[in-house]
């Protein structure tokens, strides 16, 4: 395990170095992503400037969800690049090469790419979360700050898990993978707002299938002292972020299943 992490580190450094060959263009693109994602938030701000509240939620409160979700998504986009671009590897037939090495395939795919450009979103998410923290009074204790950090990391786990599942689809088909974006990008779009504004079907889906609500609104509502949300009691909401790592582990099992299928069909 620790050896895998060590190798992952080596692979990532290599992937980063080839990305960083042109530092000036890297800085420009980073700034570009920060600006672009920044304008996404302007739309939310405009919405609240016009209507004041959204289903009883104030802008500062929504900013908490928005910031947490975007920070998690930014980390996932950055770390999950290898899985996101996996279709290309399969198409070129490079996956056999990974199978020939005495290392885990998921580690090698994860190590095959990292996209620091995506961290531009980190700037936006961080700024929005900071605004939420300041305007909500900043009365959070260490436990609650820990919960927020946990939610962000857990959210990253869910999004990376989704990217792993998207990559797993490549073992069946390498066509029309855009459908998977509905869950990653769409999931982030949805999680930016409190989930209780959506219909029951969507709510259940994002609580029990893709547990984005568990790493976002459920613990968020505890912080905001909102009482039970989405029908889940507050005590469970404290533990809800654990669903993130669990989802990630399950996605890795599905990945292994996909690899087995690949090896028996050889396509």
């Amino acid at each position: 395990m620790s050896y895998s992490l060590h190798l992952y580190g080596r692979l990532i450094l290599i992937a980063l170095r080839s990305r960083m060959q042109y530092p000036a263009s890297f800085v420009m693109q980073l700034a570009g992503t920060a600006l672009l994602t920044g304008t996404e938030f302007v739309a939310v701000w405009a919405l609240f400037a016009r209507f004041g509240t959204l289903a009883g939620w104030r802008l500062e409160e929504v900013c908490l969800f928005y910031g947490m979700s975007n920070l998690g998504y930014a980390l996932a986009e950055c770390l999950g690049e290898g899985f996101d671009k996996f279709a290309q590897q399969v198409r070129k037939g490079d996956f056999d090469r990974l199978l020939l090495r005495p290392c885990s395939t998921s580690m090698q795919v994860a190590g095959s790419g990292m996209d620091p450009m995506r961290l531009g979103r980190l700037v936006q998410g961080g700024a929005v979360l900071a605004y939420a923290a300041v305007s909500l009074g900043g009365a959070w204790d260490w436990l609650e700050i820990g919960l927020i950090i946990g939610c962000i990391l857990s959210g990253a786990c869910v999004f990376v898990g989704l990217l792993v599942l998207q990559a797993t689809l490549c073992f069946w088909t390498i066509e029309s993978l855009e459908i998977a974006n509905v869950l990653t990008h769409g999931g982030n779009e949805a999680a930016q707002f409190p989930f209780d504004i959506y219909g029951p079907g969507l709510r259940r889906f994002f609580t029990f299938v893709v547990p984005l609500a568990c790493v976002n609104i459920l613990p968020g509502a505890v912080l905001l002292e909102r009482g039970p949300t989405l029908g889940i009691p507050a005590w469970a909401s404290w533990g809800a972020p654990l669903m993130g790592p669990l989802f990630f582990l399950i996605s890795l099992r599905v990945w292994e299943f996909g690899v087995r299928r690949y090896r028996s069909t050889g396509t």
């Binding site: 050896y3 060590h6 190798l7 080596r10 692979l11 290599i14 090495r101 005495p102």
Partner: peptide, 16 residues
């Protein structure tokens, strides 16, 4: 994209 020498070193680590 890697110099040959670094590919060799990396493979050496993969095979321990």
């Amino acid at each position: 994209d890697l110099p040959v020498r670094e590919s060799f070193e990396l493979l050496g680590e993969m095979y321990r």
